[in-house]
Design a protein around this nucleic acid. Structure first.
Lengths: 150, 150
DNA sequence: GTATCTGCAAATTTTTTGCCAGTAG
DNA sequence: CTACTGGCAAAAAATTTGCAGATAC
């Protein structure tokens, strides 16, 4: 696809993971970068139809998979059943509204301060969930080139 | 159902939320309390069939909903698409294995120490996700009796 | 030129729902 | 007794898959 339309960083991240740089993947990624919420696959689909009218929902799912595999996007599971997607790469936290399901970004700062500020701003905080991701002993991933212990 | 077969605490938590205490709900809850992993609805279904052979998967889903509504279990969304359920009520963290999808309990202790200990024990940690749950300003839940600001 | 990708639709998987007999309170 | 439930099967919702023509490199 047109090399000038996408950033080199985007293209290289895809190619590093063995994926090709296509118009559909760029459109999905650009949309996720342009919003500050965390859309579902279906929301991405409808938004991207403005740029690529004939795109299919299946293609959006495949694009999100490829982007996630390339580390450009993170898939966030949702208690309501449809996953949400986040194109912010720097570490940060999330606030989930139990009424609307909306997911907001929070800065990655120390917890007591963060929670106090949320409460002062009118948020009601009912719980926190912390999940550590990785591999249990023995279930280690195949070491990515240059990534493992040497 | 037979009052002596279930704890009063269990019965009261259900009744407080307007649910009846039934054999099926008790079996689902007992099973979740008896394991230290966090089963999917289908795993709960198969396990509970040992005690209630004619139970249906739909009933298990309904029971899990009732238990979650009563605050006896927590539904944990899963990137692989099927939710997992946790009957531990005290605050704690989770470790998710990216290879097997297994979800382990972690003690709710200070982060740098916890991560160091995991690494020493052979875990490979690749990321952390923190989610704050609650209500955005204006989207407040109907205040539970005695729960809201007075 | 060739392996990968898209679009489309069908298939799969997970969860929810409707209904009527059965049960808890 | 009476409303709430359980079992069952059908439906809905979310995601994945298969394939033939199109595209990236």
């Amino acid at each position: 696809m047109n090399p000038s339309a996408v950033s080199d960083e985007f293209r290289r991240a895809l190619e590093r993971a063995g994926w090709r740089c296509t118009r559909q993947r760029a459109a999905v990624y650009d949309y996720l970068r342009s919003v500050d919420c965390h859309p579902t696959a279906d929301e991405v689909f409808h938004a991207v139809q403005g740029r690529i009218p004939h795109i299919g929902l299946g293609t959006v799912y495949k694009a999100l998979d490829a982007l996630a595999d390339a580390g450009l996007v993170v898939k966030i599971p949702d208690p309501a059943g449809r996953a949400r997607f986040d194109a912010r790469t720097e570490p940060h936290y999330h606030f989930r509204c139990l009424r609307t399901g909306r997911l907001l970004d929070l800065p990655a700062e120390a917890l007591p301060d963060l929670l106090d500020r949320l409460r002062r701003d009118g948020f009601r905080v009912t719980a926190c969930r912390l999940e550590v991701l990785g591999f249990t002993p023995g279930d280690d991933a195949p070491p990515p080139p240059g990534g493992g212990p040497t």
